[in-house]
């Protein structure tokens, strides 16, 4: 029993600290986010995932940046300009700094996490419009990542040697709380995308927070079954409806 537990822990550690052979330092992925309204999908926003180098005097980190912006026709109804970014170790995507700047309609919120990877402590600062900044020091479990580096970390998982039905769990720090996420590998599937017909790894994504992702088998992500493992299509069910994420353009891939 103990041996099995150790083996499982070892497997999880492998997945968390997997080496980065998939994500380059000048990559740009552009997606179209659609929202289902009465059975009709409406393109509402453009989501961009970009990587770049971030040089300090001591080290060169990888900057993972995700932005979401509503299309101009929606701006007068509900304007979204969100920025999520993480500064990570380029070889294993361990986060050092995470910034979240949410600007949705009249709702504004910023959150910053500074990770101390040696002591598993996180210094956080939350800023809200017309409110004083709120500082908190958190203690996290080893391997806990922010939302951006977790999304990118999915691309480090070795699906090639994975049996269909295999589950991987990960812990995400979001809004001062550690929440559990789970990815289930569902096998390969070939789908048509804006960048051509692609053979993909199909994943089911779940969370222990029902207010984030609804259902255990309602959220799916397709990653290309090549060296880059880029996300090309996603189907999500959230509390206010369901939507899709489709790849629009790709540039600067590593492989």
């Amino acid at each position: 029993m103990m041996r099995t537990l150790f083996f499982l822990a070892f497997l999880v550690t492998i997945s968390i600290n997997a080496q980065n052979n998939a994500i380059g330092h000048a990559e740009k992925l552009v997606f179209t986010a659609s929202y289902n309204m009465s059975g009709v999908l409406n393109n509402i926003a453009e989501v961009t995932m970009e990587t770049s180098e971030a040089k300090t005097s001591k080290a060169t980190l990888l900057r993972l940046k995700c932005t979401a912006a509503t299309y101009s026709k929606w701006d007068s109804f509900f304007k979204i300009r969100d920025l999520y970014e993480s500064y990570v170790n380029p070889s294993n995507l361990t986060p050092y700094l995470h910034n979240r700047d949410v600007n949705e309609g009249s709702y504004n919120k910023a959150m910053k996490y500074t990770f101390d990877t040696k002591t598993n402590k996180v210094k956080s600062v939350q800023s809200k419009k017309n409110k004083p900044d709120e500082n908190r020091n958190l203690t996290i479990h080893g391997g806990t990542k922010d939302i951006v580096s977790t999304i990118y970390s999915l691309r480090l998982i070795d699906f090639k040697n994975m049996a269909v039905g295999t589950k991987k769990t990960f812990t995400i720090l979001f809004d001062w709380e550690e929440m559990k996420g789970q990815v289930t590998y569902l096998g390969k599937e070939t789908i048509n995308t804006a960048i051509g017909k692609k053979e993909c790894y199909k994943l089911a994504i779940g969370s222990n927070q029902p207010d984030v992702l609804k259902g255990t088998n309602s959220n799916f992500l397709w990653l290309t079954a090549d060296g880059n493992k880029i996300p090309v299509y996603g189907k999500f069910k959230i509390p206010v409806g369901n939507g899709e994420l489709k790849i629009k353009s790709v540039a600067g891939l590593k492989n």
Partner: peptide, 12 residues
């Protein structure tokens, strides 16, 4: 902020 952190020699 990153300048102030204790980062080991990390490079791409």
């Amino acid at each position: 902020e990153l300048e102030g952190l204790d980062l080991e020699d990390i490079n791409i």
